[in-house]
Design a protein around this nucleic acid. Structure first.
Lengths: 216, 216
DNA sequence: CGTGCTAATGACTGGACGGTCAGTCAGATG
DNA sequence: CATCTGACTGACCGTCCAGTCATTAGCACG
């Protein structure tokens, strides 16, 4: 038995491992499409299977249930290099203004410009009914983002770059237009498009004038 | 026939009309609860009926389908006196700062503090899959709100109260923290509460400093 | 009190879909 | 080549529920 366990897997697993991973990714990608299009409840696992090029039963060899599929998909999509960004930004040690511009460029290119935008949209839609998803997203994305922004603001205050501390107290104010852009483009973009780049630019300009100016 | 139509309805309609209205309202109120709790797809009409104190079939005497029920509920919930607010604000002709404070107070008390918050949350959740709802909400709420904010900003610029025009170009920047507050309290409020009043205060302070200060 | 009408009911139907599992077959093994 | 294995399949099961409709309740009127 020990021999069997050592020899055979060494060959067939090596091969199967790639395939397994590739198949899982295909399933998760298909799931993203279908969940985005229909929402969690109306998404049909048969559609996911068809789009992934497997049979329905196969999905259950990779995930335990429809809900687990949803969570796996969100997790995979959230493998955002947010930690990398976080450390890079803190290491670069740029002025707060440059840092904020970097963050908004990141937001536009890596979130709004990719399918991550749809994952976040899905979270906004479904998190109310999936406390688990809400908690994961809060822990892995939100709280880190808020902490990063708070540090940037605090550092700018210490250095005298900022004259006031509203951003240290409410880092949410910095990304609020990001949330709005996401919601707006997802829901109303086809009715009234929003020039996200210009809006972000105007936002940073306003923020800098307010924070660098004389304290109230 | 003419006599019947004139006489009998005059009595029985008068009575039935009240009851009919009351029953419809009960159904819509029940629908709000259930839709908020479960989302559109997972909401069961039997639950709505039970909560409204009627039988399932009765719902179909008032609305044509589950989707029509959802739309009727949103419509009823959107009977926001936004037009009144709009005209009052334009008539009062206060300084832009006072106007913005009024708007945020309104937002806190009349939206975030009531079940309208839940209706808006429902719209954010479901509008992606209900283009009709998205369009109605955009037409009746969003575009009016944006127009109002734009006018306030333009007027302030003309008067010299504001030194720059970012808000005229992107009124969205003014309400972005409102959207964030709504999303945050709906999804993450139980994990990390947000002091909405303080945040709004900080937001208005920042905005005023940026807009009243010297142009960039 | 009987008659006629509408509002209301809730058992029922038809279809949809999450999840299961007996069976298939490609490829590994000896 | 014969055998074995386990990944994969898809028909099937049980359940759920939107929407229907035959039946009943409630009420006005003569």
């Amino acid at each position: 038995m020990a021999t069997r366990l050592k020899r055979k897997p060494a060959i067939s697993r090596a091969r199967s491992e790639e395939q397994r991973q590739a198949k899982l990714e295909a399933i998760l990608a298909a799931a993203l499409d279908v969940f985005v299009e229909k929402g969690f409840s109306d998404a049909r696992l048969e559609d996911v299977a068809a789009r992934a090029g497997v049979a329905k039963g196969t999905i259950y060899l990779y995930v335990a249930s429809k809900e687990a599929l949803f969570e796996a998909m969100v997790h995979a999509g959230l493998a955002v290099p947010i930690e990398t960004v976080e450390q890079k930004i803190l290491a670069l040690d740029l002025p707060a203004e440059a840092t904020l511009r970097m963050l908004f460029a990141f937001l536009r290119q890596e979130v709004l410009g990719t399918q991550r935008k749809q994952i976040v949209g899905l979270i906004l839609s479904e998190a109310g009914r999936f406390p688990e998803i809400a908690a994961v997203y809060h822990r892995e994305v939100l709280s880190r983002g808020m902490r990063l922004l708070r540090r940037v603001s605090e550092r700018a205050v210490e250095r005298g770059e900022f004259q006031s501390d509203e951003l240290s107290r409410f880092p949410q104010l910095a990304i609020a237009p990001g949330v709005l852009a996401l919601v707006w483009t997802n829901l109303f973009g086809h009715i009234e498009p929003l020039d996200v780049e210009d809006m972000f630019e105007a936002h940073v300009a306003l923020l800098m004038r307010a924070l660098k100016g004389p304290p109230a």
